[in-house]
């Protein structure tokens, strides 16, 4: 069961990377990043169960806190970009290119 949980975590992480690569909707890209974090979290939990140590659980909790902070900031940035450009396309957001 632990081995299969690790396979699942790899699958979720790869699906998240694929989401970031393929989609152009900024919301979906953001959720794909969250999916990658979740895949990594499942890996932490599975390894914690395997080694019977609590460190993995603590790391998973810290990752969730970072994800929450990231969600707050990223959604604020999305609101600003939508106000600025009126679009949700990641290709339109090229402010940093100058």
């Amino acid at each position: 069961m632990i081995e299969h949980a690790l396979y699942l975590s790899v699958a979720l992480f790869c699906l998240g990377v694929l989401g970031v690569i393929t989609r152009r909707n900024v919301f979906v890209v953001f959720m794909a990043i969250e999916l990658m974090l979740n895949g990594a979290n499942l890996g932490f939990i599975a390894f914690a169960r395997l080694h019977e140590s609590m460190d993995g659980h603590v790391l998973a909790l810290l990752v969730m806190a970072v994800a929450a902070a990231e969600a707050a900031l990223a959604l604020a940035v999305i609101i600003l970009l939508h106000k600025h450009k009126g679009k949700l396309d990641t290709n339109v957001f090229n402010l940093l290119r100058g």
């Binding site: 069961m1 632990i2 949980a5 699942l8 979740n38 979290n41 499942l42 939990i45 599975a46 914690a48 169960r49 659980h57 998973a60 909790l61």
Partner: peptide, 13 residues
């Protein structure tokens, strides 16, 4: 995923 954490006996997570 929450259900999977439960199955991996990570109740708090």
């Amino acid at each position: 995923l929450a259900g999977l954490y439960g199955l991996l006996s990570a109740t708090l997570v």
